[in-house]
Each structure stands twice: as structure tokens, then as C-alpha cells.
């Protein structure tokens, strides 16, 4: 596994203003994520896990400090540049799947490819490959409403990987699934990490889910406590 840094967070501050009140989530947060690792982030509700993913995904900006991606800061990119950067590098997986209800599975998976210059057949190939990888090629024509929760999450994973991103950001991907289905999803994520070299950052509050990661960080009151599961 490559040991190069994918992300480096230097003295990141993040606070929200709620009315007159200012809530500080991170105060001088430092961390790094290596290329190719499968990082689990755990922590109590409200500890800032989602906020951290948003910062890593360039959906939100730090109040102060730098976020370096492969050595260059992303926090000073414009909105347009960030959109491009996300389309190129990130696959997002959410707790509630967030599929487009009016599009069938294949078209949901195809969505990120609209941001690339690809021919129709190239797009179809990528969609087929992604759906096969999550074992849903037989459901390509189904609407999300015709799929179970686990199947919808697999479609969401296919959508996240279809454009071959550098890393995946997963916010409680198994939070809404039963144990057996959760295991299927986690196995797919593990496969993507091990066989396809995708760096994965996964937020979860399920310790059993965190077992699938190679490293686990505990977030509490904006601070990290590290536990190494790789050993």
C-alpha cells in the first residue's frame, strides 16, 4: 500500500454561528489520511463527524487552517473549481442513499458521468461495470422505489465509483440497514479498498462496521483518539 499522504489537515478551525451564538466544532484539528487507506471515524452524535466529511469533500470550508489534498490546499479554490474537483476525485455515499426517485438504477449510476466528456457507449460500459461490481446488473432498469434499502445503497455505491474517483466519503453508509445487509455493503467497500485501491473515509457509530476499516479514529469534542485496527 502506498504511503503517500492524500489529505493533510493543519490547524483546522471550524465554527458555526447559530443566531448570536458561535459553536466551535474544531479548534486546531490536525490529521492526515494516506492514499489507499480505509479510515473509519467514530464518535458520539454531534461530535463533528459529518462536518469533517464535508470539509474533506470540499462541500464546506474551514474557518481557519489548511486542508491539503496531495500537497496543495483546497480551501482557497472557488466554488466552480471545487465542483470540478469533487467530480474528479470523490464518490459520496450517504446514510439515506439519496438516489433520484425518477431515474432507474442505471441512470442514477450514470449521473456523475454527465460531468465527463464520454461517449454514450463509454458511459454504458462504466455503468455496467459499476453495477456488476455491486452485484446489481440484473436490476439496472428498476426504479429506486422497487429496490430494498440494501439494494438502493448498492446503487448509491455504484454511482459513487462509476467515474473512478480517488476516494470515497461515506457518512454512516450502514446506519439505516439491518446487520446482514450492512455486512454486504461493508464487504463491497472493503473490496473497493483492497482490490481497487480506493481510499475510503467512513463515518459510523457501529463498532462492528469500523472493524472493516484499516484504521479507526475516535472523534470526541473536536479531538481525535486513534485506534489502529490494521494489526
Amino acid at each position: 500500500m502506498s504511503q503517500k499522504q492524500l489529505f493533510e489537515l493543519n490547524n483546522v478551525n471550524k465554527s458555526f454561528t447559530k443566531g448570536k451564538e458561535e459553536i466551535t466544532i474544531f479548534n486546531g484539528l490536525n490529521m492526515s489520511i494516506k492514499e489507499g487507506e480505509f479510515l473509519a471515524i467514530m464518535g458520539p452524535s454531534g461530535s463533528g463527524k459529518t462536518t469533517l466529511l464535508n470539509l474533506l469533500g470540499g462541500v464546506d470550508r474551514p474557518t481557519a487552517g489548511d486542508i491539503l489534498f496531495r500537497g496543495s490546499p483546497i480551501n482557497n479554490l472557488s466554488e466552480g473549481q471545487l465542483s470540478k474537483w469533487r467530480a474528479e476525485h470523490i464518490g459520496f455515499i450517504f446514510q439515506f442513499y439519496n438516489l433520484m426517485p425518477m431515474l432507474n438504477a442505471a441512470r442514477n449510476v450514470e449521473l456523475p458521468l454527465l460531468l465527463k466528456k464520454l461517449s454514450r457507449s463509454q458511459r454504458r460500459n462504466s455503468v455496467d461495470t459499476a453495477l456488476k461490481l455491486v452485484g446489481l446488473e440484473a436490476r439496472a432498469g428498476h426504479q429506486p422505489s422497487e429496490l430494498s434499502g440494501g439494494q438502493q445503497q448498492r446503487v448509491a455505491i455504484a454511482r459513487a465509483i462509476v467515474s473512478d474517483p480517488t476516494f470515497l466519503l461515506c457518512d454512516e453508509p450502514t446506519g439505516d440497514l439491518d446487520r446482514a445487509t450492512a455486512v454486504e455493503i461493508l464487504e463491497i467497500l472493503q473490496l473497493l479498498n483492497r482490490e481497487f485501491g480506493k481510499t475510503i473515509v467512513m463515518v459510523t457509530h457501529d463498532p462492528a462496521a469500523a472493524e472493516y476499516a484499516s484504521r479507526c479514529l475516535h472523534l470526541d469534542k473536536g479531538e481525535f483518539i486513534e485506534k489502529d485496527l490494521a494489526a
Binding site: G57, V59, E79, G80, S83, K84, W85, R86, A87, E88, I90, F92, F94, N98, M100, P101, L111, P112, L114, L115, R159
Partner: peptide
Amino acid sequence: TREIAVLKTIGFAA
């Protein structure tokens, strides 16, 4: 609202 947010997250520009 949610779907639009997803599109933006995926990388669709405003």
C-alpha cells in the same frame, strides 16, 4: 431540495 443538494455534492456546478 435534497436531490439538488446531492447533484451539487456530486459536482454539478451551480
